[in-house]
Amino acid sequence: MDLTGKQRRHLRALGHHLDPIVQLGKAGLTDGVVAAVDAALEQHELVKIRLGTECPDDQSDVADTLAERLNAGVAQLLGRTILLYRRHPKEPKIKLPQGN
């Protein structure tokens, strides 16, 4: 999912006050983590994920892998925090702005 700059800005503003729903620990990115993020995206559309200091995986690799496997867009990658967005197929809660 490709997001425009304007859409990313909008999602970053919405995600600023969110708490991380999923946290990655020393096991890194596992199938269980992917399933948890998938369930969170299904419910919330916009999800903040935190990589713990003991997580062996690179944050940009985790963001890219999650986005690809879950058909989501990376709205922000800031330090060890990832903000992912995936539109709900039937009842979208977030209205994205159009354009660049």
Rank of each mutant, 00 (worst) to 15 (best):
K93P: 09
Y85M: 03
K48Q: 06
G79L: 05
T53Q: 15
K48C: 01
A35W: 07
V33Q: 11
L51M: 10
E45P: 13
K95M: 10
E54N: 12
Q7W: 05
L77M: 04
V33W: 10
R9G: 07
G99L: 08
A36Y: 02
V22D: 04
D31H: 05
H10A: 08
L29G: 00
L29R: 12
I49T: 08
P56L: 07
V37E: 06
A13L: 13
G79T: 01
K6F: 08
I21T: 13
R69S: 08
L14P: 15
L18D: 00
G99N: 11
R8Q: 14
H17V: 04
H10Y: 12
G79E: 03
L84S: 00
H10E: 04
P92Y: 02
D64S: 12
G28Y: 07
M1W: 07
G73T: 14
D2N: 07
I21H: 08
L24K: 05
A40R: 04
A39W: 09
I21E: 04
P20M: 08
K48G: 06
P20L: 03
T4P: 05
R50T: 12
G15H: 05
A13N: 10
Q76V: 01
V34P: 00
H44Q: 14
A39K: 11
A67F: 11
M1A: 10
A13C: 10
E91Y: 14
P97V: 11
R12M: 11
E54V: 00
L70Y: 02
R80G: 06
L78R: 15
D57E: 12
K26W: 12
D58T: 08
E68W: 13
R86L: 01
L11M: 04
N100E: 15
P92Q: 09
L14Y: 11
L24S: 02
E54G: 06
G52Y: 03
A67K: 07
C55S: 15
Q23V: 15
L66T: 02
M1V: 12
I49L: 03
T53I: 12
A67N: 14
L46A: 03
I94M: 02
V62L: 04
R9H: 14
L96K: 09
A63I: 07
P92V: 01
K6Y: 11
